[in-house]
């Protein structure tokens, strides 16, 4: 197994490397682990996501964030220089075909590295790396031609407020709750009180690979031919047509947003005295944990919905009850 440590690389390169290795994969190819860190911030769409449905285009443009689409799964990610980006590119025949087993084998290394760094990380919900029930990494994977790919990142720091501002939230209360929830449910090495440098995190993960995967690791570099394919992939993954793969233009705003393996935010509209209300619901393991209200147009002057009473009535109840009664 080859370990390629690229250090800081451009946004498109950070995604193109594993696509290139996957494209060139044959049964005779070396399995490769790539470690790198994006030199500048960018957004990355999951393969099946629709651009306008998950990214606030104007906000992304205002911040000058490049957008890239990957060919593997998972949701929208914000990547920057405060994340160690790890990429497993193996021939599919050398990994279990079942995602649960595949994730367990490959993610054992980042989990071990985090523990060595002092974070009690565990693998939850098949593919979420968590520390005390808070996500510390984003994960995506897929079959790309003959390769099985799993990518993820270790967060040294993470700007939850910027990420939340980039979602096309349906109303301000939803955005507020999303930002709060993200900040609460996502942790970083810094939040855990660790001031580890990128070099230390990378070295710790590199040292965890052989024992976790049970295979020897040899340091290596990309060949000129592989770099050539990387350059092709950089073009392909940022091609405007590929970015708009599942539909162009604006799409209906979000009504559901995943925060972690257990926590989602749902948007619901309900009739109420005086005003119709939008509710942003933080739902943890199916139970409504927090509500933020967004009043709409007044139906009849003077009538007011008792938001405190509505909140008390719904907190702690299952979301399915809202679906029936709300």
């Amino acid at each position: 197994m080859r370990l390629v440590r690229l250090g800081a690389v451009g946004a498109a390169t950070s995604q193109a490397v594993y696509h290139a290795l996957a494209r060139r994969m044959t049964p005779q190819s070396q399995d490769t682990v790539v470690l790198c860190s994006p030199a500048q911030p960018y957004l990355c769409l999951g393969y099946h996501q629709t651009y306008g449905q998950v990214i606030h285009r104007a906000e992304a443009a205002r911040r000058g964030l490049p957008v890239i689409r990957r060919r593997v799964g998972g949701g929208l990610t914000y990547l920057d220089s405060q994340q160690l980006f790890y990429q497993f590119v193996f021939h599919h025949s050398r990994l279990p075909p079942v995602p649960k087993r595949l994730y367990a084998r490959l993610l054992a290394a980042p989990v071990a590295a985090l523990n060595q760094l002092g974070c009690p990380a565990t693998l939850e919900g098949m593919n979420e790396i968590e520390v005390n029930h808070r996500r510390i990494a984003g994960i995506g994977g897929g079959r790309v031609e003959e390769a099985s790919v799993v990518v993820g990142n270790i967060l040294l720091d993470f700007p939850a407020d910027i990420m939340a501002a980039l979602w096309p939230c349906p109303f301000p209360a939803f955005a507020r709750l999303a930002a709060q929830a993200l900040d609460k449910r996502v942790t970083t090495l810094r939040k855990e009180g660790l001031q580890a440098s990128m070099e230390k995190v990378e070295a710790t993960l590199a040292a965890s690979l052989a024992p976790a995967l049970g295979r020897p690791v040899a340091p290596g570099e990309l060949t000129p031919e592989e770099w050539e394919t990387v350059r092709e992939e950089e073009q392909a993954l940022t091609d405007p047509e590929f970015l708009e793969l599942h539909g162009e233009g604006e799409t209906p705003p979000l009504t559901e947003l995943k925060i972690s393996a257990r926590a989602y935010i749902h948007a619901r509209q309900i009739p109420a005295p005086g005003k119709d209300l939008w509710a942003a619901l933080l739902v943890k393991e199916g139970v409504i944990e927090q509500i933020e209200w967004e009043p709409l147009e007044e139906k009849k002057k003077g009538e007011k919905a008792d938001l405190a009473a509505l909140t008390q009535a719904w907190l702690g109840r299952p979301l399915v009850a809202w679906k029936k009664e709300g």
Partner: peptide, 9 residues
């Protein structure tokens, strides 16, 4: 194509 468990196929 399809996707399950954040994994495309």
């Amino acid at each position: 194509s399809l996707e399950a468990a954040k994994m495309t196929g």
